[in-house]
């Protein structure tokens, strides 16, 4: 939490400057995905629906990414955000190919954070990992 401005390097630490906004977006998505998955799983317990567990995976990914970015753990952040990008792409394609797996009974078209490439979240889940990877790359310590 003690952030000393580092003027020694021209590169920005990944948790400072615009990186803070990235942390904020990840935190907000983490909150949304966590709340969503807990409710989805709790309300349909003991029925298991694949999309709900995918929401839970997304929630964990966002929370880990939030903490990694906030603490400037570049390697953890890189791993998590890369996984996030593959996750949103894989689930996005999957949700178009196998629509039946993403329609849960009784909850009007309730799907998951990453289905249809994050359409329900204004495609932020699709753009965010790309933005995140760019940010990490830009501030890579050489």
């Amino acid at each position: 939490m003690t952030d000393t401005p580092n003027s020694s390097s021209s590169k920005t630490r990944i948790n400072s400057g615009p990186g803070r906004m990235l942390v904020a977006v990840y935190g907000l998505l983490g909150l949304a995905a966590t709340g969503r998955s807990i409710l989805q799983i709790a309300q349909t317990w003991p029925d298991q629906h694949l999309p709900y567990w995918l929401s839970a995976v997304a929630a964990v990914v966002y929370l880990v990414a939030t903490v990694a970015l906030a603490r400037a753990s570049a390697r953890v952040a890189l791993g998590t955000i890369t996984f996030e990008l593959f996750g949103v792409l894989a689930v996005g394609i999957w949700s178009y190919v196998d629509k039946a797996a993403f329609v849960a009974q009784g909850s009007a078209g309730d799907t998951t954070v990453w289905s249809k490439f994050g359409q329900g979240y204004g495609y932020v889940p699709l753009i965010l990992p790309i933005l995140g990877l760019w940010w990490l790359r830009r501030n890579e310590s050489r």
């Binding site: 401005p5 400057g17 990186g19 803070r20 906004m21 904020a24 935190g27 907000l28 909150l31």
Partner: peptide, 25 residues
């Protein structure tokens, strides 16, 4: 959301990104 973002934004007073966080929130 607002209390968290607000405290963060105030803690981050030395830079513009405190308000950036509030914008996101």
């Amino acid at each position: 959301v607002l209390p968290v973002a607000g405290f963060w934004g105030i803690a981050e007073r030395e830079s513009r990104w405190g308000t950036g966080v509030l914008l996101v929130a």
